[in-house]
Each structure stands twice: as C-alpha cells, then as structure tokens.
C-alpha cells in the first residue's frame, strides 16, 4: 500500500495518540522476560524485546475461552470480539498467526477464533534483540509472513512503516508520517533481510529433506524414547508454541448451579492422557501411551504432517519450546539435526 517514515522523536507521540483511540497490545516487560500485554503507558512498550513467554495467539485463542454460556439446557453464543491493535509482532509470530488463521478457518470456520482475529490490527516489527534459542532463520525459509496490516522497521533516526491493508493505513492518522525516501526503504529492506540471519541455532537441512527424514524415523521407537527420557509430559512446549492450537472442552456450572459455561482451554499432545479414550466397562485405550510416542507426535506435527496444507513446516523457529523446557529436551533443532545427520 504505502511506505512511510516517522522520526524517532515523533514515535512515542504516535504510540500515545494511537493508545488514546484504540486498545493497544504490545510487548511489555515481566520480570526478566517479556509478554504481550495491554499498554497503559507509552514507556511500557518494549519493541526491543527478544521473545515473549506466550505467543500472540492468546489474543485470538485465549488460554481459557467460553464457547457457549448456558442457563439450564438453553445455550447462548458468546462470540464478542473486542477491537484492538496488536503492535510489535516479530515476523516469525506473524507467520504463526497466518497458520492458525488458516487452521481455524479450514473445513469448519471457527468464529470463536476468527472473530477475535478479524477485530485485530496486526503491526509487525523488526527483531532488535534475538532470543538465545531462536532458529527462525533456518526453518520455513520459503514461507513469507503475511496476513498482517503493517510493518515497522527501525532504521537510523526513526522507523519505516509499511502499511499493507486499510486497517494498517488507518493508524497513519495518529503520527507525523511522511513518505519514506528510497534510501530509507533500502535501509529497511536491508535490516529485514539481515535479521533473518541473526538466529543463533540452525537446522541443518531444508524443510522438505527434514520432512522426509523425520517421517522416515517414525518407526525408530528407541530413538524417540531416548529423546523423551527426561520428558515430564508437562506440555510446556505445546502451550508456548505459536502454532499449537489443541484444546480441551469442559462444562462448569456457576455457583447458582443452574447457569454456567462450556469452556475450551489450551491442551497439549505431550500431556499423558491427551489421546486416551474410554472404551467402556473400565477399559480405556491410550493411542499415544509412551512418552516417546507423544514426543514424536509433536515433532511430526511440526515438521511433517501439516507441511502440505501449510506450504511449509508448522514451526516458525521462535525457540519458545526450547526456553520453556526445564529438561531441555524440546528443542526441535537438536532433534531434527540428530535425525537428518543420522
């Protein structure tokens, strides 16, 4: 659409004006880490963050989300999107949002997600600091980020703001933007190309080779049990993953014992009973009973199973799973490199 420039000295004013008019969610500090949170003041915004604990999926697909409310046996839908600006998303997370957009839309459109998504304006930004476990530069290289409404790149003396949709363009009203000149555009392009080389960890093969070799390793049960030996089945790797979207659904009554809600909450395929079902008469079958089989399912799900429909791996290289795994076994880079190197 258009490429604009705003001076560093005008930038906070832009964010402040935007906050007056809109609900703005952006990266903010939490202890020594970062989270996406609703901005209450401009100086909370930390565009120099490396990675957030949870990915921005939580805004569209909250950890707990009521799907329906009920009174007795009468149900009411409760899809009620709140418009907001999601400001300062790194490109790997934009890729992930694009995937969950597709997944919640395919076959049966899930408006509990999609309505929140449509009500949100997404502005991407340059990765100024890199997470120590990131590998975004070596995964899904042929998959370009899309679906966002604008992108901010930090260059000398200010920011280049590329608007991609009318939702993105609407934000121009809040700041002193001028047209970016060719030198500024070129500098922004260079910054955004270079950032992709900055991730410290690297998968040592291309996506289709990875998919092929990982798929082939399926039957190596011993290898998978070895990978998963220290697994706690805690599902942390699932929960922090920007492309994981599995959920559980539970009903609960309110304290009046008459009304209540049918609620979905984030689930994870690493949890022990994720694929368990009761067959009756006390019998139950767990279709992924061992730690190794669950560990394998996650890697297959990220590197193999969905590649065809997503056009690339269902992993964007954010490194959150590696950071969140206290046993440090979740890192897909270690797993995949071990497999591709035989």
């Amino acid at each position: 659409m258009s490429v604009k420039f705003i001076k560093e000295t005008d930038f906070n004013d832009f964010v402040g004006k935007m906050m007056e008019a809109r609900t703005v969610v952006g990266p903010v500090a939490k202890k020594t880490k970062f989270v996406f949170g609703e901005l209450e003041s401009v100086d909370q915004l930390r565009l120099d963050y490396d990675v957030t604990i949870l990915p921005p999926k939580k805004l569209f697909f909250p950890p707990r989300q009521d799907l329906l409310k009920f009174h007795g046996q009468k149900g009411t839908s409760c899809i009620c999107p709140q418009p907001k600006v999601l400001f300062g998303v790194h490109y790997y997370d934009i890729k992930a949002i694009d995937q969950t957009d597709f997944l919640f839309n395919e076959n049966n459109a899930d408006q509990n997600y999609l309505a929140n998504r449509e009500a949100t304006t997404i502005i991407g930004t340059t990765i100024q600091n890199v997470s120590p476990r990131a590998f975004f530069g070596s995964v899904g290289k042929n998959v370009n980020p899309k679906g966002h409404d604008g992108f901010l790149t930090r260059i000398n003396g200010g920011w280049v703001f590329e608007t991609l949709t009318s939702k993105g363009r609407d934000l121009l009203d809040f700041g002193k933007f001028i047209d970016a000149d060719d030198a500024q555009k070129a500098e922004a392009a260079k910054v955004n190309t270079e950032e992709k080389t900055k991730s410290p960890e690297k998968i040592k093969a291309e996506g289709d080779v990875v998919a092929q070799k990982v798929r082939k390793s399926f039957s190596e049960d011993e290898l998978w049990e070895e990978f998963a030996k220290d697994c706690f089945s805690c599902g942390s790797c699932n929960i922090v993953c920007p492309t994981c979207y599995c959920f559980d659904v539970q009903d609960n009554w309110n304290v009046d014992q008459h009304s209540g809600a049918r609620t979905r909450s984030w689930d994870g395929c690493l949890k022990a009973d994720f694929a368990e079902c009761s067959l009756g008469q006390g019998a139950c079958e767990n279709f992924r009973e061992t730690k190794g089989s669950r560990f394998r399912h996650r890697i297959m799900r990220k590197a193999v199973y969905s590649n065809e429909k997503l056009g690339g791996p269902a992993c964007v290289g954010c490194g959150r799973c590696s950071l969140s795994c206290t046993a440090d076994i979740a890192d897909p880079v270690n797993v995949i490199n071990r497999i591709v190197e035989g």
Partner: peptide
C-alpha cells in the same frame, strides 16, 4: 474408527492420527 473426539470439527487435535 473410534478416537477421543472432543470438538468434532477438526480443531482440538485429540483425534489426530498422522495428518
């Protein structure tokens, strides 16, 4: 087949077998 189908609409992941 029988699996733990929770959402019934291809989202929740519980009944996934391969792709």
């Amino acid at each position: 087949l029988e699996r733990r189908m929770k959402c019934g609409v291809g989202k929740c992941g519980h009944c996934q077998i391969n792709d």
